[in-house]
Amino acid sequence: MVRSFFSLRAAGYRFNLVGLIGFCLVAGWAIVALSAPLIIPYPIGEIVDYDYFGPISGQFWLGSDYLGRDILSRILMGARYTVGISLLAVMISCSVGVTLGMTAAVIGGWLDTLLSRFLDALNSIPSKLFGLVVVAGIGSSIPVLVCTLAVIYTPGAYRFARALSVNINTMDFVTVSRARGEGTFFLIRSEILPNIIGPVLADLGLRFVFIVLLLSGLSFLGLGVQPPNADWGALVRENIGGLPFGAPAVMFPSIAIASLTIGVNLLIDNLPQKIRDRSQ
């Protein structure tokens, strides 16, 4: 990620200040995720404080959790799951959803109807039922978790991308291009995608937020991150009892989630013009 940033810069892509802040937040958490096992002060499963929901102190920088474990260590390790799994899942669901959405809009007809109705049906299946069937049928592991999240969020990405593409598809330049005899793949890549990339990226940013939040829900269904590890949403959930005390154990995981998701969305909103705009 860091290397690609510099090579992009060299190629003339420039961030504005807000974009840079977003980038730093995301990159910062990515570095934390990669180096977490090296920098955590305490083992994440060890009860180091006999008090619970302990305050910020020199010994425990972000206080202790509901069992008396060090919350800083748990957040640092949790970054691996929240950042890694969510990014992967959002990439899969959006690339699949957007590709299918554009294809359906360009080709239209039966393919469009079939795909649209199939994904509508998929979206109508209650997610708890879906999660339980996956756990029962395939079992629980990180790849299964990523795929489940991707499947749950693909129909939404598809629907939004299709709605955008249908509008572009009626534009004169697409009609011209089609009249020139260009193939579907060319139309999608060169005419449709560049024109919808802005909203699609915004959609991706938001979907990322939803996935970060759903992750902990699935963990509680037994599908996903296993103890003593926990993603950030699960950290908030297991320490929610500390909310009335304003415990750092519930505040800091929430701040971590907010900083990551705001970072991702600021980055997306302020991507260099060259990526964001259709002019090429």
Binding site: L132, V135, S219, L221, G222, L223, Q226
Partner: peptide, 10 residues
Amino acid sequence: FDVQRVPSDG
């Protein structure tokens, strides 16, 4: 010990 958290459902 490999702790496996499973759904309370079922």
